[in-house]
Amino acid sequence: MGIIGLGEGLRFVRQKTPAVIKAHEKKLCKQLCEQLSDIDKIKFYEADQKKVPILSFNIGDIPSAEIASYLSEKGFALRGGLQCAAVTHTTLGTIEQGTVRFSPSAFSTPQQVTALSRTIKIFAANN
């Protein structure tokens, strides 16, 4: 079953193409950034978009794990903390707080990103 699953995954990537998948994910990162740009206490840490479409952020001094936990309770799977990248967080100055990481997939939708941004805005307004 594992080999069949791997084969289907490869077939999907070949059909969509890595460039199309990356463009889709990059567009969703941009969408989230734009939808949250009006929150004064949010700070973004954007990855090198040439390499990987990821958007990390913090809301004020709130621990990233607390934000990620809240979002998880609301049905969103974002990771909070150091994401196995302590050196990067040292460079960013986020070694104590970590960040919340949004990393969309080929299956993520603009509607899901809008729902996520609404949920983040509620959290930010109440904290």
Rank of each mutant, 00 (worst) to 15 (best):
A86C: 07
A124W: 07
N127H: 15
I42W: 01
K26I: 05
A86W: 01
A65D: 13
A77M: 14
K43H: 07
K50D: 15
A65V: 15
G9R: 07
I120C: 05
F123L: 13
T99G: 02
A125P: 07
A47I: 01
V100C: 04
L82G: 00
D38A: 13
C33R: 03
I3R: 09
I3A: 12
E73I: 04
G5I: 10
I122D: 10
G80R: 06
E8L: 15
Q83M: 10
Q112G: 15
E8T: 08
K121S: 08
L32S: 04
P104V: 02
F12D: 11
N58T: 15
G60F: 05
E8I: 09
G75D: 13
A47F: 14
P63W: 05
T90G: 02
R101M: 11
I3Q: 12
E73S: 15
L28G: 03
A106K: 02
P18N: 06
K50P: 04
Y70C: 08
E34C: 05
T119Y: 03
A65S: 11
S72G: 14
G9H: 06
S117K: 00
A115T: 07
E34I: 07
A77F: 05
R118H: 15
K30Q: 14
G81R: 04
T91V: 14
F12Q: 09
L32W: 03
V100K: 03
F123W: 08
E96H: 10
K26V: 09
G80D: 11
T94V: 12
I39A: 04
A77P: 01
K74F: 00
I54L: 04
A19S: 14
Y70W: 08
K51D: 14
L71C: 11
T91M: 08
L55C: 12
S103V: 10
T88R: 00
K50Y: 12
I67C: 04
R118N: 15
T88S: 05
L92Y: 06
Y70N: 04
H24S: 10
P110C: 00
S72P: 07
P63L: 03
